[in-house]
Design a protein around this nucleic acid. Structure first.
Length: 123
RNA sequence: UGAGUCGGCCGGGCAACCGCGUCAGCGACGCCAACGCGUCGGUGUCGAGGAAAGUCCGGGCUCCACAGGGCAGGGUGGUUGUUAACGGCAACCCGGGGUGACCCGCGGGACAGUGCCACAGAGAACAGACCGCCUGGCAUCGCAAGGUGACCAGGUAAGGGUGAAACGGUGGUGUAAGAGACCACCAGCGCCGCAGGUGACUGCGGCGGCUAGGUAAACCCCACCCGGAGCAAGGUCGAGAAGCAUCGGCGUGAGCCGAUGUGCGCAGAUGUUCGAGGGCGGCCCGCCCGAGUCUGCGGGUAGACCGCUGGAGCCUGCCGGCGACGGCAGGCGGAGAUGGAUGGUUGCCGAACGGGACCGCCGAGAGGCACCCGGGAACAGGACCCGGCUUACAGGCCGGCUCAUCCA
RNA sequence: UGGGGUAUGGUGUAAUUGGCAACACUAGGGAUUCUGAUUCCCUCAUUCUAGGUUCGAGUCCUAGUACCCCAG
């Protein structure tokens, strides 16, 4: 379990991030990123649907993702919300693969976000 | 030794470092009048299953409804027990399967009534003459006895063929041919008596009419049972927002933005040209705006907390019982999360399985044991709790019983 | 978590009381034609799976699988 301050736990927060945030897909996960105006530390949440597998598989995927993402949160700007959706391929992935995909996904999404905000400033 | 059958148990192990959830101390910081609360750090403690699963039954618990009885609707279905209860379980009965241990059965009623039984077949439910068999007539052949029949009238359910099913079976008497028409035995049905059993039912004996189809997982009848919803039940504490009013700012304006106050319902008091309350002001006078204001009680959104884990609990021994189970005594007691805690990295040991080698042992051989290398564990995760059922499951351990074979 | 529903050719749908699984489109093959279109004919089903009741099951019963919907 993540520290209470680093958790997303409202359904509205989830839908907001997934709908309006920047998205980046990899082989095992899809990362949604949204920066908010608040000065609180970054928050993360996970979506693992029944398509990934049965309860045992889903929990294992969630646990692995949770432990992999914890050090990455420190590198994000305050107020950032992250939602990680696990894709069906994640069921058979190892922790190292998941970690690599997470890093890549967050990198791509934050790049998109930076480009978008830069465009807004220049406009 | 081999084959089989029934039951019980286990369901990877031991460590290291980092990390997580509960609870209890400790320390630091912050808040508070206080009780205490929050955050961080660190220590200790405990931390998924035999099915936690499917959600198919039953119960506890909570709220709502409820005099009793009946109807409707749903469920169950051999008997006797067991239990908090059950559609579970145990023993027994009946039917079927197996050499046997043992296994399987939605196992009440088809004499309460209704419906259905396609196709085939002559006929399918108080049945039916297609072929066949027999008698008579008629025709015909023949000297006659008698024979024959694309004919007519009648008898006949023994035989053929159809079907899932054709109205007891075998043998005889009988007859024109036949038939429970009659007889013997057998099967089956009903009634009576005796004996055994709590009972389902069983055994023996007698009598009767001679034969009664299937389907109730078709409607239905009979007996018994069932109020509804579910812990997101339910309870406790309870912001705020919207709206409205006033003020300020912006805008030609509709309006927008900000600040302050007031939340909602009910009751009471008071008040609307006889002025509640508010503004200006240090106060009074005065001036202005003007329909609400005050008090009490109650409901309640977000959210938080409780419910939340000690329960029909587990283990051992003794006693009662064939058994399910019950009684007594002693002992043990250790998940409670809420976007949801068990993960990551690694070491040692390791089952199944795959391969190698013919040097060891057994064997005629195939092969087995041992050896070496590889390999690295099934189904599957709590979400209020418990009793069952069902389904999934790599593999291992233990015990009872049966059959076959060998040895003594 | 609780409640409800569906499953039939490749696709979309039928099948009153249990009795030969029907229709449309698509696909493949054939016929007609000099060739093509049109037209006609034929082919394509373990009725989701397993077991049961029945003479007989798409239909009735039991268990399972997959998918969908509803409440919060």
């Amino acid at each position: 379990m993540l520290p209470a301050k680093a958790r997303l736990n409202k359904a509205e927060d989830f839908s907001l991030v997934v709908r309006t945030g920047q998205r980046a897909g990899t082989r095992h996960v899809a990362v949604h990123l949204l920066s908010t105006s608040s000065e609180e530390p970054p928050r993360a949440g996970f979506v693992v649907s029944a398509k990934v597998g049965n309860s045992v598989i889903r929990h294992r995927v969630t646990r692995r993702l949770r432990h992999q993402i914890l050090p990455m949160l420190a590198g994000l700007a305050p107020g950032t919300h992250v939602v990680v959706r696990a894709l069906p391929a994640a069921a058979g992935a190892t922790s190292t693969q998941l970690s690599a995909d997470l890093t890549a996904g967050i990198g791509q999404a934050s790049l998109k976000m930076a480009r978008k905000s830069a465009a807004q400033v220049s406009r």
